[in-house]
């Protein structure tokens, strides 16, 4: 689908996308966010888009999560203005400072430990899913377990990550 094709789908589904953004907490800014969404989508490199509406929804979802993340980062920056380490920005080079490397390594060690504590199966399920991007169904087949086992392992792993994040932020 070309950009103009995507544009047609975008305008046809304008109201649905607006509703989605509003449900996502965009509130009164939903119209502005929709504008931003179109800017993003139309600026992306043109490529084949199989399911244009699903593509637009996904982009809308990512946009809301990014906004949340950006807000959270700037809040944190205001709070810990003296924090030399700062936040790692994906795609941007880290400062060569040794401190940040130590922090990153420490964080990874904690994350590895938290996963290991779940037991080998749940750890493998989480790594396969989150780090390797393998769909749940494939993981279930690979490990010879049921889909619901994979689901519950992933829930446990995410709970452990939430708990870890809470601890890291409190430090």
């Amino acid at each position: 689908m070309t950009t103009s094709g995507l544009e047609a789908v975008f305008f046809e589904n304008r109201d649905r996308l607006l509703r989605f953004l509003a449900a996502h907490g965009a509130g009164e800014a939903a119209e502005d966010v929709l504008q931003e969404l179109w800017m993003r989508v139309s600026a992306a490199p043109a490529g084949p888009v199989g399911q244009p509406l699903a593509y637009l929804y996904r982009a809308a979802n990512n946009l809301m999560v990014d906004r949340h993340r950006a807000l959270r980062t700037s809040e944190r920056r205001d709070r810990d203005w003296s924090d030399a380490a700062g936040a790692t920005v994906p795609g941007v080079s880290d400062a060569p400072g040794g401190e940040r490397v130590l922090i990153a390594r420490e964080r990874l060690r904690h994350a590895d430990a938290a996963l290991a504590a779940l037991g080998p199966r749940a750890e493998a399920v989480f790594r396969r899913h989150r780090l390797d991007g393998i769909p749940q169904r494939e993981i279930a087949a690979e490990l010879g377990v049921s889909l619901s086992t994979v689901e519950s392992d992933l829930r446990r792993a995410y709970r452990a990550m939430i708990e870890l994040k809470g601890r890291l932020d409190a430090e």
Binding site: H24, G25, V65, P90, L108, Y158
Partner: peptide
């Protein structure tokens, strides 16, 4: 729900960064 989901999705992105620093050896636990 949106607030809880977004917080979680942001955490999920953080998790990606944690492990991207130095991906640990491929997991073959036992």
């Amino acid at each position: 729900r949106a607030a809880i989901y977004q917080e979680l999705a942001a955490l999920d992105a953080d998790i990606g960064d944690w492990f991207a620093v130095a991906p640990s050896p491929v997991s073959a636990p036992d």
